[in-house]
Nucleic acid binder design. Sequence first.
DNA 1: TATATAAGTTAGGTAACCCTAACACCCCCC
DNA 2: GGGGGGTGTTAGGGTTACCTAACTTATATA
Lengths: 164, 164
Amino acid sequence: MKHLSRKAEDYLEAILNITLEKGYARTKDVAQELGVRPPTVVEMIQKLDAMGLAVYRRYEGVTLTPEGRSIAEVIKSRHDTIRAFLTLIRVPAAVADHDACIMEHELSPETIEQLRHFVEFMSNQFSHPDLLREFDLFCAGKRQPQKVGQHGPAQKLPADSAGT
Amino acid sequence: MKHLSRKAEDYLEAILNITLEKGYARTKDVAQELGVRPPTVVEMIQKLDAMGLAVYRRYEGVTLTPEGRSIAEVIKSRHDTIRAFLTLIRVPAAVADHDACIMEHELSPETIEQLRHFVEFMSNQFSHPDLLREFDLFCAGKRQPQKVGQHGPAQKLPADSAGT
DNA sequence: TATATAAGTTAGGTAACCCTAACACCCCCC
DNA sequence: GGGGGGTGTTAGGGTTACCTAACTTATATA
């Protein structure tokens, strides 16, 4: 199996997303989606083409081969799982989407699978219908400890503090 | 504030870990910890020195400045949070440690903070003492659906499947 | 049809990280 | 005090992924 850099995966996923959305993908679309300049896109697309994951035709655009599409769908699926998890723990949607992009590469299959399980478990009304409500209260307590203050130590832990 | 690449953060964290463990850090130690060759370490350490985050003395080793140490502690704290979370969802310890290395960079402060909250929430006996036991059963059901099979759809979802 | 504009491409360059090979230094031990 | 083995550093490259500037192609419209 050929080795794909995390960036190459980003491009495959972007091409898939754009194709799903508007039926075809142009250089400019991919550049916009990934926040890079067109020449960078051309360079990567040529690599993907050489790897047999995409078909690139100059001045026309790019499509995924079945193999490329299949890989792209795996990446996208990871992305969706991670985003679902982040949303579950009350990370704002935009941030969740951004961070899913960061997390979706290189995580071990075990971690991805456990994330999947967890999301499914938590979505299951069987398991703990009010757990997330309680988690919300817990988070609220973190933000305004003097008003709720029942769920843990009262001091706020800023995201970037180095506290033990 | 100066911009630190994710690799630079790795080096800071490694230097902190080694210093905590044996009191001082040599080129070779850092190289071993990060799985790179000594010249690579020298190059990065010189950069960290130039940034005022480390003090590098040829043939002697490297130490962190207060600023460098403070940053390293933030990174380490993130690492610990992430590893705690992964352990919570039953990712094997070695994998959790590895994946924490991957996740600890670039995640938004919001995500890190929510992970912290979640870990604390789940560790709180107040909240849901048996939730993790139920999650274990759920995961067991995922592995052997025919034996437990009460908690969800029975088909296994391989980590890398592109399902849905 | 001619051409202006938008999109796409090529050429050439930069920065971050990594490497190997060769050379420099430190220090124990004879 | 002079080697030798291990550690450290320098020199010189390579890869990946990004960029700008200049050029080419496609297309819409006058």
